Amino acid sequence: MTTERFLQLADVAEILNISSSQTYALVRSGDLPAIKIGGRGQWRVERAELERYIERMYKETRDFVRSHPFTYTDNAEDELG
């Protein structure tokens, strides 16, 4: 993997282990900041923005877990699947 400043959406998808369409949706919704560059308007995500996004998702997940405590009546298979 490169250490370039900007990543293509395909690179972001690979890093997050999600589909290209999911990555595009994150960018188009504004959840993951990106820029359009070049004559064809290619999307690029700055590596630092991707890291901030990942940290934000960790925080949101921690907050979710704290506000939705796991109980033995929960079906763990549903959460993991």
Rank of each mutant, 00 (worst) to 15 (best):
I37M: 11
G38K: 05
V12L: 11
T71F: 14
L9C: 08
W43M: 04
F64Q: 11
E49H: 13
E60P: 01
I15E: 02
A76T: 14
S19G: 15
R62M: 10
S20M: 12
L7R: 12
A76R: 14
E4G: 10
P69F: 05
L16M: 08
L9Q: 12
E55A: 00
E4L: 02
L16D: 03
A25D: 04
T61Q: 07
F64H: 13
G81M: 13
E46N: 11
K59Q: 04
L7K: 11
I54M: 10
Q8H: 09
S67K: 12
Y24E: 14
Q42F: 03
L80N: 15
A48F: 06
I15S: 03
E79M: 15
R62V: 02
R28C: 12
G39H: 09
R56F: 00
L7W: 06
Q8D: 07
E79C: 15
A13N: 03
S67C: 04
F70N: 07
R52D: 06
F6M: 05
R47A: 08
E55Y: 00
R52Y: 05
T23W: 12
S21A: 09
G38M: 04
V27Q: 12
F64D: 07
I54T: 00
Y72K: 15
G30T: 04
G38N: 10
N17C: 09
T3P: 02
P69K: 05
S19V: 06
F64W: 14
M1E: 05
N17Q: 11
A10G: 07
I15M: 03
E77C: 07
A10I: 13
R56A: 12
A76V: 15
E14M: 08
L7P: 11
R66T: 09
D11L: 01
R66M: 09
T61E: 04
S19D: 11
H68L: 05
L32R: 05
D74V: 08
Y72F: 11
Y58Q: 10
R44M: 09
E14H: 07
Q8M: 04
K59C: 00
E46R: 11
Q8F: 06
E51H: 10
H68C: 04
Q42H: 10
I37D: 08
K36S: 12
A34P: 01
L9M: 13
L16H: 01
V65C: 01
S19R: 14
E51G: 01
A13F: 03
A48L: 09
F6D: 02
L80C: 12
T71I: 13
R66P: 00
R47I: 01
E51K: 09
N17S: 11
R5A: 15
D11H: 04
L26I: 01
G38R: 04
L50E: 06
I35Y: 08
T73C: 07
T3Y: 10
L80A: 15
V27A: 15
L9E: 07
E55K: 00
P33V: 07
D11E: 14
A34Q: 09
R62W: 08
W43F: 12
